[in-house]
Design a protein around this nucleic acid. Structure first.
Length: 543
RNA sequence: GGCCGGGUGGCAGAGUGGUUAUGCAGGGGCCUGCAAAGCCUCGUACGUCGGUUCAAUUCCGGUCCCGGCCUCCA
């Protein structure tokens, strides 16, 4: 595997600088991203993190080869919030006996975590995220977690107090390195939990006692209980990737204390100079300038951004409000380290169309046009296409994942491929060839961003009906099926032609309005024929 | 209080020591009976005050705002 142009630069939170990324082993680049705690659906801000680092995964695969990258994203299925959620659900079920088991009908904690883990993976798949190479779960790694805690005890970095096992922050000189904080400063103005059994206010829990709870408590050498929040990641990283990894990523709010504590645990247990060489942290989604969060209540579930219900039993019955790919592009429309403003939900409760919805559709139109009879031939032939080293989208991503720039480059490739805005310098002879190449690189560049996974025909079949802001108070169209058959449309168009020929424009426009009200778009052409299409059709039909 | 990050045209959002992305919205034009589609085109923005410089939105300093983290959080 040749490594093409391996000049990936990434902003490393650990050093505070943009650095050239150099993996320890180019044949096995190791990446760990903090995954979800599965007690609820992911909101769109959670999805941002996964989407951003999915782009990283794709770029690394491009540079180091698909087999050269190991990407682990955990599932946290042991957590106080999960227990709380389960008990709350249980109470509700008892209160509303007559109600049919709603979303999950989760009888056990196992079922609850499995349910939300599956929902998480499904939402991300819809957003075009590749499955991670590995998806370790906390509960399945309990022996590794316990062994790691024991190791920290043996090495004098942890102690037992009143049934708890605690990490001794004082035993680790570099504590605070990632967050760039000093322990004394934190304690000073601090809101750290000062428990009497802590040797130092900043010490944090590795293991805590718990009464037996099916699926959420475990035996250990110290007491029956469950692990603290941070130890699972340390244990799973070591278990599936190694003691020292190349990249560790997550949301900016995980930097402290979560990642700081991971570093302390892992480095003290393994006696390593770093846990990860490169640390990446993504910024938040904001709503009206405020961080989107569950506690503020200003969040949207990811699925709400493109479908009406979370139910997925019958895919065909699900009404798409928007293309999930367009939601993905919107998530990538700001640089990952910056905050990204998420528009307020409109009166009708649906996500406003983003400014990039049109680009996806336009690109697909080109693929479809290039795709022969089925419309999919081009897309099929280019299944294995990769970006050239100088693909402008690729170059933008190599510079610290500059996705906004990449999107503008995508737009330029689209213009080139379509032959419009003749700023393409390939004016020399091979204009057609240049367009063809641009189209291929448009597809390849888009795939680096995680777009264009669907075949054109499938994409257009799934197109939501036009819900352009018509000011109508009616519910959004539920699919654009309007009862008008092709024959009826042709007849109406014929009538309109006749009226136009007679210069009876009032009659002609009445017919046009009828068609428009049925979501049929029409287009008169220079040769006198009239074309029409429904919003989800890729091509104009002759009428 | 400590530590980060940011203030760019109507909105969103890149970037750069001098030629000033991109998208959305908007204006004008071609085309059209009218539209649609397409094409062409326009808007010279960088919080504020100083400094460095031939030249600063871009570098430095002050200042004013805004956001995040320090507690569960992507």
């Amino acid at each position: 595997m040749t490594i093409a142009n391996p000049t990936l630069k990434l902003f490393n939170s650990l050093t505070g600088r943009k650095e050239l990324f150099v993996p320890a082993d180019p044949k096995r680049v190791t990446v760990y991203v903090c995954g979800p705690t599965v007690y609820d659906y992911a909101h769109i801000g959670n999805a941002r993190s996964a989407v951003v680092f999915d782009v990283l995964f794709r770029l690394l695969r491009d540079v180091y080869g698909a087999d050269g990258v190991v990407y682990a994203r955990n599932i946290t299925d042991v957590d106080d919030k999960i227990i709380a959620r389960f008990q709350e659900q249980h109470r509700q079920d008892q209160q509303e006996q007559q109600e049919q088991q709603s979303q999950a009908g989760n009888q056990t904690i196992d079922q609850l975590t499995d349910f939300y883990a599956a929902a998480y993976n499904r939402d991300l798949a819809a957003l075009g995220c590749l499955p991670p190479t590995l998806q370790p779960r906390a509960r399945e790694n309990m022996p590794a977690i316990i062994a790691l805690i024991q190791r920290l005890l043996d090495r004098g970095h942890a102690y037992v107090a009143e049934g708890h096992v605690l990490f001794a922050v004082k035993s680790f000189a570099d504590y605070g390195q990632l967050a760039k904080r000093r322990v004394e400063e934190m304690v000073a103005g601090a809101r750290v939990e000062v428990a009497p059994y802590k040797q130092d206010p900043c010490d944090f829990v590795l293991w805590k006692p718990s009464p037996p709870i099916a699926g959420a408590s475990f035996d250990s050498p110290w007491c029956h209980g469950r692990p603290g929040w941070h130890i699972e990641c340390s244990a799973m990283i070591a278990a599936v990737l190694g003691d020292e990894i190349d990249i560790h990523a997550g949301g900016a709010d995980l930097k402290f204390p979560h990642h700081e504590n991971e570093i302390a645990q892992s480095r003290c247990a393994h006696d390593t100079p770093v846990l990860a060489h490169t640390w990446l942290h993504n910024g938040f989604l904001t709503v009206g300038g405020e961080k989107m969060s569950k506690s503020l209540g200003n969040f949207r579930y990811a699925w709400q951004c493109w479908r009406q219900t979370a139910a997925v039993d019958e895919e065909d019955a699900v009404v798409l409000l928007r293309q999930p790919q367009a939601v993905r592009l919107q998530l990538l429309s700001a640089h990952y380290r910056q905050p990204l403003n998420w528009p307020n939900v409109g009166d009708r409760g649906i996500e406003p169309a983003s400014q990039h919805d049109g680009l996806i559709e336009d690109c697909y139109s080109l693929f479809h046009q290039a795709g022969g009879a089925s419309g999919d031939d081009f897309w099929q032939q280019q299944q294995e296409v990769v970006a050239t080293p100088d693909n402008p989208v690729r170059l933008a991503l190599l510079d610290d994942l500059n996705t906004p720039l990449a999107i503008s480059r995508l737009t330029a490739l689209y213009q080139q491929a379509r032959g419009g805005k003749a700023n393409g310098k390939g004016a020399a002879g091979d204009a057609a060839d240049g367009k063809e190449q641009a189209l291929i690189q448009l597809l390849a560049g888009g795939r680096l961003l995680g777009l264009f996974a669907d075949a054109p025909s499938a994409f257009f079949r799934a197109m939501p009906a036009a819900t352009k802001d018509t000011g109508s108070t009616a519910a959004p169209a539920t699919g654009g099926d309007d009862g008008l058959q092709d024959g009826q449309i042709a007849a109406l168009l014929h009538q309109r032609q006749t009226a136009r020929a007679a210069r009876d424009f009032a009659a002609a426009d009445t017919i046009k309005q009828t068609l428009t009200s049925h979501n049929i778009l029409i287009q008169d052409t220079a040769d006198g024929t009239t074309l029409y299409k429904r919003p989800h059709d890729p091509d104009w039909r002759t009428g």
